[in-house]
């Protein structure tokens, strides 16, 4: 976006809206997806996030940001939430929330860490843990639009049980010759695991990302140490820092900026 476009854009306030839980999907033992009906949702781009606001009966409020997991094409808005032990908001969302419950939400927020089919490829997505969530919105968007943008997802999880969207990712990759999904398991691998082991390092990135000559669009999302390591490796491998978009999930659940 150019400065002039930004300046000319009409200013509208992002209003708080009522979100109602329509469906809850158990993704892993500590991760759930909340499928929400938002009455006046104006649409979003893959990679954007929302703010949610929980209000207790005594008036106490807590706000947090969560990435959107659903593509713009879907009717319901999906947030995928990982339980952070000792957290204040995520244990409520993961353990207490039921279908029919309501809370306030506003968005979409963020316009930098986004991908649309118009931006093309090749697309190198690199996820650590729940950092896969905004990247999944991109993969689902790409899938719904059914265009053959060459794409790779390099996804690091602690164990097979921690892999979010495993069945859906497997299914997507199986019937799409232009999509490659590479899982690496860092702490525990099941017997007979044929996939990658250990943290994402420079060698794995060199092997699984599209080479710098092809100028891939790169999106990296995960914990701060994960993103710091991966983005540093990528720069050392010769990728232009300006082509590497990052989103760091801090211990406080923060997202961009």
């Amino acid at each position: 976006m150019t400065v002039t476009e930004a300046a000319a854009r009409p200013v509208r306030r992002l209003q708080w809206q009522l979100a109602q839980v329509r469906e809850i999907v158990v993704e892993t033992y500590r991760v759930k997806s909340l499928l929400l009906h938002v009455a006046n949702w104006q649409g979003h781009l893959s990679g954007q996030h929302v703010d949610i606001r929980l209000t207790a009966e005594d008036g106490y409020q807590a706000q947090r940001s969560y990435s959107i997991a659903s593509p713009p094409e879907d009717q319901l808005l999906t947030l995928t939430v990982e339980r952070v032990d000792n957290g204040e908001v995520s244990p409520y969302l993961v353990d207490d929330l039921r279908v029919g419950d309501q809370f306030d939400l506003r968005g979409p927020i963020g316009g930098y860490f986004v991908w649309t089919t118009a931006m093309g490829g090749p697309l190198s997505l690199i996820a650590g843990g729940s950092g896969v969530v905004p990247l999944m919105a991109m993969l689902r968007h790409r899938d719904r639009q059914n265009i053959g943008v060459a794409t790779s997802l390099l996804y690091s999880s602690r164990s097979l049980e921690d892999v979010i969207y495993r069945a859906e990712l497997d299914a997507m990759a199986r019937c799409d010759p232009h999509l490659r999904v590479v899982n690496t398991l860092t702490r525990k691998q099941p017997d007979g695991w044929m996939g990658r082991r250990g943290r994402i390092d420079k060698a794995l990135l060199a092997e699984e990302c599209f080479p710098p000559e092809r100028s891939p669009k790169i999106f990296v999302c995960g914990s701060t140490p994960f993103v710091e390591d991966v983005s540093r490796f990528l720069v050392e491998l010769g990728y232009d820092p300006l082509t590497i978009k990052t989103e760091r999930f801090g211990p406080s659940g923060g997202q961009a900026p």
Binding site: Y112, E228, S231, R232, V235, K245, Q255
Partner: peptide, 10 residues
């Protein structure tokens, strides 16, 4: 703690 938030590599 002191979360880190940036749009690109450090």
């Amino acid at each position: 703690d002191f979360p880190v938030l940036s749009a690109g590599p450090t």
